[in-house]
């Protein structure tokens, strides 16, 4: 608009901005993709001289790595289910019911974001030591649930709020029980919000590195935890392959849920109204 058209060399500057933006944000990612599919890439060639899938075979032939993939997915699934069971009732209550201290309860979920993550994990770790939860499956799941409480409560709550009360009331008037109304009217309409929140939960569990590193070592090495040792000990090509494997679920799930996702839905998790 006028704001930038006023600049005479506007286009050149804009092109420069886009170039720097893409190089800074996507250069490192592109580099990993090249590394993962390269056969031979000697210094100082700018691009690999041959391509191959050898590093993929190498990674999938490594038992420790394969095990971590399975572990990560099972933990993420359980975390998502647990978090849905815990949070969806609260989300509905915040959207539909009037009860004392509603606002205090609602905003208390900000506490999960009010502490620096590593500080909170160390605090939880100190507690886990006392209860023997260090290096247990339950402990790892609980650490992951911390990060999901706020999204899982706030995003579905906003979705429940968007369901028109008149639709529910019409169904009630024609004689449907409250549970039937919830199941057949409210839930389907609020489903996109719940799906978005579940995907966030699943991904945040899949990507959680620091908390798992703190309480899950040595037996619960999820993908991101393995990544710490891969960075130190493996060739960059193997690390790049593993990076793609770890990023793939994110891309697939986000593309699948694209129609539900907008910056509104994401921002909804941070700005409850």
């Amino acid at each position: 608009m006028w704001y930038f058209k006023a600049l005479p060399r506007g286009k050149i500057i804009e092109f420069f901005i886009v170039a720097v933006f893409c190089l800074f944000f996507f250069g490192p990612l592109l580099n990993l993709v090249l590394l993962a599919f390269s056969g031979e890439w000697r210094y100082p060639s700018k691009l690999p001289s041959s391509w191959s899938l050898d590093w993929w075979k190498y990674v999938f032939g490594n038992d420790q790595i394969v095990h971590s993939i399975l572990l990560s997915f099972s933990i993420a699934t359980i975390v998502t289910i647990v978090s849905i069971i815990i949070c969806i009732p609260a989300a509905y209550a915040f959207a539909r019911l009037q009860f004392p201290l509603r606002r205090v309860f609602l905003f208390s979920f900000l506490l999960t974001n009010a502490f620096p993550k590593m500080g909170l994990y160390v605090a939880v770790g100190v507690m886990f030591y006392k209860f023997g939860l260090m290096n247990t499956f339950v402990g790892v799941v609980l650490i992951h649930v911390i990060n999901t409480l706020m999204y899982m409560t706030w995003i579905p709550s906003a979705a429940f709020k968007n369901v028109q009360k008149s639709q529910e009331e019409a169904a009630r008037d024609s004689g449907a029980s409250p549970l039937r109304v919830f199941w057949h009217i409210t839930l389907p309409i609020a489903a996109p919000g719940i799906i978005v929140a579940s995907i966030f939960t699943f991904l945040s569990s899949l990507d959680e590195a620091q908390g798992t590193l703190l309480v899950g070592i040595p037996d619960f090495q999820t993908m991101p935890v393995i990544m710490y040792s891969i960075i130190a000990d493996y060739p960059a090509n193997a690390g790049a392959v593993f990076s793609i494997i770890l990023t793939l679920p994110t891309i697939v799930l986000l593309l699948a849920a694209r129609k539900f996702l907008g910056s509104d839905a994401i921002a909804g998790g941070f700005q409850m109204k």
């Binding site: 069971i85 815990i86 949070c87 009732p89 609260a90 509905y92 209550a93 915040f94 019911l97 009037q98 009860f99 004392p100 509603r102 309860f105 208390s108 979920f109 506490l111 999960t112 502490f115 909170l120 160390v122 605090a123 939880v124 100190v126 507690m127 006392k130 609980l142 649930v145 911390i146 409480l149 899982m152 409560t153």
Partner: peptide
């Protein structure tokens, strides 16, 4: 009834919050 139901529905996630965030912070 709505008040009680509301609190009962919030309780699971609120208790998780207490156990996983507030309490550890106090312990530490």
């Amino acid at each position: 009834k709505q008040k009680l139901l509301g609190i009962a529905m919030v309780l699971p996630s609120f208790l998780s919050l207490i156990i996983l965030v507030v309490w550890p912070v106090f312990i530490s």
